[in-house]
């Protein structure tokens, strides 16, 4: 297996996903297959190759520092299920 069960569990936690034991099994098998497949890239020597993060080489795209009206709060909040006093509401957080 290219990836272990415990690694799958760790990655799930990082990604904030919850799986049943069966799903963990299934993902371990499937991800292992996919990782084996993508490991094909290791056939290539890329030692002296620069990575390409942006395919079109442009830079310095800015906006001017100008204030424009924000959106109506009703619209900002309209898709939230839990809200109170103009705020989004989440479970109590103890800091």
């Amino acid at each position: 297996m290219a990836i272990s069960r415990s690694e799958v569990e760790h990655v799930a936690k990082l990604a904030r996903l919850k799986f049943s034991q069966e799903e963990i099994e299934e993902f371990t098998v499937q991800l292992s297959k996919i990782i084996d497949y993508v490991n094909k890239l290791n056939e290539l020597d890329t030692e002296n190759v620069e990575p390409t993060a942006h395919i079109v080489p442009i830079y310095n795209v800015f906006r001017e520092d100008e204030v424009k009206p924000s959106m109506d709060r009703d619209k900002i909040l309209m898709n939230a299920l839990y809200k109170e006093n103009g705020c989004f509401k989440v479970p109590k957080i103890i800091e």
Partner: peptide, 14 residues
């Protein structure tokens, strides 16, 4: 910012 004065939850102001 998270506001914690509420008793049954925390509120978020962006």
């Amino acid at each position: 910012k998270l506001l914690h004065e509420n008793t049954d939850g925390s509120l978020v102001d962006y």
